[in-house]
């Protein structure tokens, strides 16, 4: 496994972004810390589809929002309980069904006709430049954050966003370290620009990406709207954690983010 390679790098000085100084914490504290972290994390994950919990039985009615309410069967008058007077609006004779509205999408809404679209499922990511070759686990959310697999050697794919290569930002995230082991993305901070990234899918196909940028953000400044964007140019976004040079208590309060774009021809 690639983690062996990572372990051998633990003591090397940083070439680019500073490395987290896990080992600089006292051994006793680190040992307890790992145990405690296990307790904390264990309580929130790794269930992918949390069982329905609180909130069921609560019914929010349109009435509570002052929304439209149709009083009963039969013909309606123009002011049949619906909202403010719109008589000042212009008649839209200029909009006709054929020209201005265009073709109206028409689908069967019958439950029995519903089918979830097949979508590519990424299963493995390889970054030769960093010795990364790690399996991917689809993940969702834990609390209000992206779920991250509770293992050192697993990469999480945010399955509610696009798959790598689909429009928008496909997010792969892994721990920088987990329970004293280097995580799958431990060396992400060292990713050279132009590196070749391979993503293998469940159907056996492989997509190629080329790294174009490497950023580090304080966690509270992670541009989540962009990172988790579901539309626009396809971007592969790789995320782990990083931190300050000195082993202060803020060591892991940054996100290291690498951006990559799809490439159609083999390279590197």
């Amino acid at each position: 496994m690639s983690s062996t390679n990572h372990d051998s790098d633990l003591g090397k000085p940083s070439r680019r972004l500073p490395r987290p100084r896990l080992w600089s914490l006292g051994l006793a504290i680190a040992g307890i810390a790992v145990l405690s972290a296990g307790l904390v994390v264990g309580s929130s994950s790794p269930s992918i589809d949390p069982a329905p919990v609180a909130g069921y039985g609560d019914i929010d009615y349109m009435e509570a929002e002052g929304a439209a309410r149709w009083p009963g069967p039969g013909p309606r008058s123009a002011d049949g309980g619906l909202l403010p007077d719109a008589s000042s609006l212009p008649a839209r004779d200029d909009v006709s069904g054929g020209a201005a509205i265009g073709a109206v999408p028409l689908v069967s809404g019958r439950l029995e006709d519903q089918a979830e679209a097949e979508r590519p499922i990424p299963v493995r990511v390889r970054i030769a430049a960093l010795g990364i070759d790690a399996p991917i686990q689809p993940v969702g959310v834990a609390g209000d954050e992206m779920e991250v697999p509770g293992r050192a050697d697993l990469v999480g794919w945010y399955r509610y966003g696009p798959a790598p290569g689909e429009p928008g930002s496909a997010v792969l995230a892994a721990h920088v370290a987990w329970r004293g082991k280097a995580g799958a993305f431990y060396r992400l901070r060292d990713l050279p620009e132009g590196s070749r990234i391979e993503v293998a899918y469940a159907d056996g196909s492989v997509a190629l990406f080329r790294s174009v940028a490497l950023e580090s953000y304080p966690k509270e400044e992670l541009p989540v709207e962009r990172v988790f964007s579901r539309e626009g140019t396809p971007i592969l976004t790789l995320i782990t954690c990083g931190g300050a040079v000195n082993p202060s208590l803020r060591s892991f309060e940054e996100n290291v983010v690498a951006y990559a774009v799809p490439v159609t021809e083999a390279f590197g």
């Binding site: 972290a37 992206m146 989540v224 995320i239 892991f252 996100n255």
Partner: peptide
């Protein structure tokens, strides 16, 4: 969107360090 990406063990739950 999720509020963050807690990849920094040991604070894997996103709890401040």
């Amino acid at each position: 969107t999720p509020g963050g990406v807690p990849t920094g063990d040991p604070s894997g739950s996103g709890v401040p360090m």
